[in-house]
């Protein structure tokens, strides 16, 4: 496909947003620009015909990462006190770093320009799609052909959550995740919180269900569900769960556990993680369903952060 003016403009805007996000002076504005940048990147993915990636990038890359960055910025600002003092001159390391980054960019561009004839795996995927149990080729790769990656990835999320939990203060352990959010009843957020959940739930479930045929899937769906939960809690309609809550923990691990069990069961069908073609369809749907639950729970807990002690008034 030949690049259009739109593509060129999009790339320039992307670079401008990225420049503002990385080089800008104000940290808060940088994060805002980053969120804009994430949405623009999602558009780029649409232009590249990768709708699944576009969804993931919009939901996770721009949305969740942006929320995490903003939350962290707010918490740090509360704790860190003043901004660090400014330095007058640009040190030599800064210039050297700019040069090194430029050289590396040129090197990457060179590598990209000299790539040999493309030899993708489209053919292999298409050939085996029927046996994979999914109609969407991306889902087939994620949950069958390279299911081991996805399984490990769902555990990476849990590892990050464990890492965050271990940063809790000892006296706060077992309490509710994150800060208490006090929202006045009747405020915009509270109203929003009442309307959003039913819609969000529908969208999330649809994304998962559609994922096997059309773009979408556990990660995208899970993100939407997580967002619903987060908003609900921020609206004060629900309280964040306690980290020691049995149900919460069960929700966190159920997806990976079922996926792992399926992987082990596969050795009875021939090898590790084998999904027999006859049953692959519903197996994938089932795994996606439990994974979505776990991913939603994990992502929400990632955003809440570790349990914190009551703030002193």
């Amino acid at each position: 496909m030949i690049a259009s003016i739109f593509d060129l403009t999009l790339c320039l805007v992307i670079l401008a947003a990225a420049g503002a996000a990385t080089l800008g002076r104000d940290a808060f504005m940088a994060v805002v620009f980053y969120i804009v940048y994430g949405i623009l990147i999602a558009m780029a993915w649409l232009r590249l015909g990768a709708i699944d990636v576009a969804l993931a990038e919009a939901a996770i890359g721009a949305g969740l990462t942006g929320v995490l960055l903003l939350a962290a910025l707010a918490r740090v600002a509360r704790k860190a006190g003043k901004e660090p003092a400014s330095a007058a001159s640009v040190p030599a390391t800064t210039i050297a770093t700019a040069l090194a980054a430029l050289v590396i960019t040129i090197g990457i561009a060179y590598a990209f320009l000299t790539l040999p004839e493309p030899q993708g795996l489209q053919g292999h995927v298409a050939e085996n799609l029927a046996a994979s149990g999914a109609e969407n080729p991306v889902t087939a790769v994620l949950l069958n052909f390279r299911g081991w990656d996805t399984l490990l990835e769902s555990i990476v999320l849990l590892a990050a959550l464990l890492g965050i939990w271990t940063l809790a203060q000892d006296e706060a352990w077992g309490g509710r995740a994150g800060l208490r959010h006090v929202t006045r009843p009747g405020s915009v957020l509270a109203q929003f919180g009442r309307i959003l959940p039913p819609i969000g739930l529908l969208v999330g479930v649809y994304l998962v269900w559609a994922g096997s045929k059309q773009p979408g899937g556990a990660f995208q769906g899970g993100t939407v569900l997580a967002a619903v939960w987060i908003v609900t809690i921020m609206a004060g309609l629900m309280q964040a769960p306690r980290v020691a809550d049995r149900a919460l923990r069960a929700a966190l691990v159920i997806g990976p556990v079922i996926f792992l069990a399926l992987a082990v069961a596969g050795i009875f069908a021939g090898a590790f993680l084998v999904l027999p073609p006859a049953h692959a369809g519903w197996l994938i749907l089932a795994v996606e369903a439990v994974l979505t639950l776990s991913i939603a729970a994990t992502l929400a807990m990632l955003v809440f952060g570790p349990p914190e002690p009551e703030e002193k008034r």
């Binding site: 590249l48 015909g49 990768a50 699944d52 990636v53 993931a56 493309p118 993708g120 795996l121 489209q122 995927v125 080729p137 991306v138 087939a140 790769v141 994620l142 052909f145 390279r146 990656d149 996805t150 990835e153 899937g217 990660f219």
Partner: peptide, 11 residues
Amino acid sequence: SDPVPQAMIIT
């Protein structure tokens, strides 16, 4: 488009 890199990117 090759779906394998797409899956890897989502991961």
